[in-house]
Simulated scan of single mutants.
Amino acid sequence: MANRLFWPVVMLLVLLIINLLAFPGFFSVQIRDGHLFGSLIDILRNGSPTLMIAVGMTLVIATRGIDLSVGAVCAISGAVACSIILGSSDPASPATVTVAVVVSLLISLVLGLWNGFLVAVVGIQPIIATLILMTAGRGVAMLITEGQILTVNSPPFKAIGSGFFLGLPISVLIAAAIFVFALVLTRRTALGLMIESVGINPEASRLAGVRARGLLIAVYVFTALCAAIAGLVLTSNQTAADANNTGLFIELDAILAVVIGGTSLAGGRYSLLGTLIGALVIQTLVTTVYTVGIPPIATMVFKAAVVTVVCLLQSPRTTELIESARRRNARRRGKAVTA
């Protein structure tokens, strides 16, 4: 119970059980035209954009920072891609879609460099530095779309968010690839240790030879790249670029997923596996709201309640109480054996 992943897993299981009681066929998975369909598949598909961003957000928070601009980056990425596709002579061409995706990702790298430059070089607080792009990013997306909702009719582009590969949604496979890449890169190399050291004590890390400035820039660039991919998935799923609503409040869901997963906002130690569980908790909670019949407008209230409960259960005071109870039980068993 003292493990930081214990209570998030318990919360996820509770939500799944509630869905099963409200809808007996909740766990059923069907195969149609070689594709998997079902409520569990929907949770994975709908939660994949949040997971993509949450993976990058985990690394940012581990460095004692935060990125509020990911939602705006999502909107810019989708707007750029749709503008290129609509401006081409053959929107249904895979080559056109490839160019649109590549240009969107390159622009996201520039946006990530901007955030990293403000934080690591200029020295602006991360919440203020990313708030600048969060505020201006929506305006940039509106300029790109000229204030219109750009609807595209391109099967290759639609496949990014709605397509299937080997029976699984492509968006789920993309999210899994990002998660595995980040997990291997940070846990099988020294990069993860350096990120933790910068988050715990930047000055000591600098004295130890860690190039904190370059590391911070790389983390913000990676987060922007994750946000751009998530924006492409969201825009593709809607088959339209909506500068006002694409990625709206997704930065909050990503932060909630990271916090539920046990990563401290104070920086330092982090858990990508916990982030995965947190993202599943967030999306399962949204699904539960719809399944039980609660008005969708109350979703944010339930998200706040879940985060509050999980954070209280993960708090140091709760951990101390659990450990104290464990020690008392151990002493009692020891006395009983002695007697």
Rank of each mutant, 00 (worst) to 15 (best):
A266Y: 06
T299F: 02
D253A: 03
C82L: 00
I160W: 06
A241W: 00
R213F: 04
A212F: 08
L20P: 08
T63D: 01
G147P: 09
K303W: 06
G334Q: 09
P24E: 07
L86Q: 01
P156G: 02
A305G: 04
S271V: 03
D33F: 13
V198K: 07
R269N: 05
L265H: 12
V103C: 00
V73H: 09
G167E: 05
N329I: 10
K335Q: 13
P91V: 00
G38S: 12
T189G: 07
A257G: 07
M11K: 08
V103P: 01
T151Y: 10
Q125I: 06
D42Q: 11
L280Y: 13
V306K: 02
L216N: 12
E146A: 12
I282M: 15
V9L: 14
A212Q: 13
F249Q: 09
V121D: 06
T58S: 09
A62F: 12
S104D: 13
Q30R: 15
A159T: 10
R331W: 12
R32N: 15
L273E: 07
F117H: 12
G163V: 01
M11N: 08
V259H: 09
L166K: 07
G293N: 03
L252I: 10
S93Y: 11
G116Q: 11
L272I: 10
T235G: 08
V80Q: 03
I85Y: 00
C311M: 15
G147L: 04
I17G: 15
M52F: 03
S89L: 14
Q125H: 13
T63H: 01
N201L: 06
R187I: 05
L248Y: 01
V121G: 00
F27H: 04
V184I: 15
V310F: 03
T246P: 00
L51G: 00
N244S: 14
A2D: 11
L131I: 13
L68G: 09
G247V: 03
S236E: 08
R188L: 12
S48Q: 11
A22Q: 10
V10C: 07
S39R: 15
G34P: 01
T135F: 10
R211N: 15
A243S: 14
V80F: 04
A120W: 09
N329V: 11
R333E: 12
K335Y: 14
C74M: 14
V122K: 08
V310R: 05
A228F: 10
T275R: 10
I294L: 09
I85A: 00
T151G: 09
E320L: 07
G231H: 11
R332F: 11
W114P: 04
G65S: 11
N245V: 03
L232H: 08
L225P: 08
N19A: 02
G214F: 12
K158Q: 11
I76Y: 15
L216V: 14
R327C: 06
L191N: 02
A81S: 13
L216P: 07
A305W: 03
S197Q: 13
E320G: 05
